[in-house]
Simulated assay, not measured.
Amino acid sequence: MTKDILRRTILFIIIACLIFTTGCATNKQDNISVDKDKLVSVLNEKYSTDKNLKLIGDNEKVEDNYITVVSYDDLANTHYVDIVTFSVNKKDSSITFLNNKGGRADTKQPLSISSAGEIFNNKNSYLITYGEVYDNKLSSIELEYNDGQKKTQEITNNGFLVITKGDFLGINKLSAFNQNNEVVYSFP
């Protein structure tokens, strides 16, 4: 009977240790925070010939990388909005710029919107929709995809970023709402 209790106790300790170490490793990995000052510093190096660089919207984690939205003006004062993909080192929180894509934005409109497809790890595809908001009455946007699925995103820092996993043909409709949840802008 004593050996049975000893075996159960040892087995319990081993299982508890495994659960504890696995949980700690997972939490440590998932709780990496993005230092915005470091991110801005890295982006200022990559966009060194541009001016008025701003982070807009929120950072989103996609698999092992992060995506953020930036706006800036070139030397000819043409306004642009880009998505930027970057990675964060788990050990020292250093940030590595991976790529960017985007285009010109018309600040005379209520908002700009762009979409881009991305494939991560050579297997998972995403539709990334992002933009900058120029009308301060807008508080959220809703995207309706070709398959009927809808996603709503709050506007933060004058921007938005919506990442949807899967193969999508595109967006059928964009609606922008004010704080009273009334449609202020819709396309088409």
Rank of each mutant, 00 (worst) to 15 (best):
T2F: 03
D4H: 14
L6P: 00
R7K: 15
I10V: 15
F12T: 15
I13W: 06
I14M: 11
I14L: 15
A16V: 09
C17I: 08
L18H: 01
I19S: 07
F20P: 00
C24N: 12
A25C: 02
A25F: 12
Q29N: 09
V34G: 03
K36F: 10
K36H: 14
D37K: 01
L43Y: 02
N44Y: 04
S48C: 02
T49P: 00
L53K: 09
G57V: 09
G57Q: 14
E60Y: 12
K61Q: 13
V62S: 15
D64N: 12
Y66E: 05
V69F: 06
Y72M: 01
Y72F: 15
L75N: 10
A76E: 11
Y80S: 05
I83H: 07
I83N: 04
V84T: 05
V84C: 02
T85Q: 11
F86Y: 15
S87Q: 12
N89I: 04
N89M: 04
D92H: 06
D92L: 02
I95Y: 03
N100K: 15
K101P: 00
G103W: 07
R104H: 09
K108N: 15
K108Q: 13
K108A: 12
S112T: 14
S112G: 10
G117N: 14
N121W: 01
N122Y: 15
N122T: 07
N122P: 01
S125H: 09
S125Q: 14
Y126M: 01
I128C: 01
I128A: 01
I128F: 03
Y130P: 06
Y130S: 05
V133Q: 10
V133P: 04
Y134S: 09
Y134I: 11
N136G: 00
N136E: 11
K137H: 03
L138T: 07
I141V: 15
I141P: 09
E144M: 06
D147W: 08
N157S: 10
F160G: 06
I163S: 04
K165L: 00
G166F: 09
F168L: 07
L169G: 09
G170Y: 06
I171G: 00
I171Q: 02
N172I: 01
L174Y: 07
A176P: 06
N178A: 03
Q179C: 00
N181M: 07
E182S: 11
V183S: 08
V184K: 13
S186V: 10
F187M: 11
F187G: 05
F187Q: 12
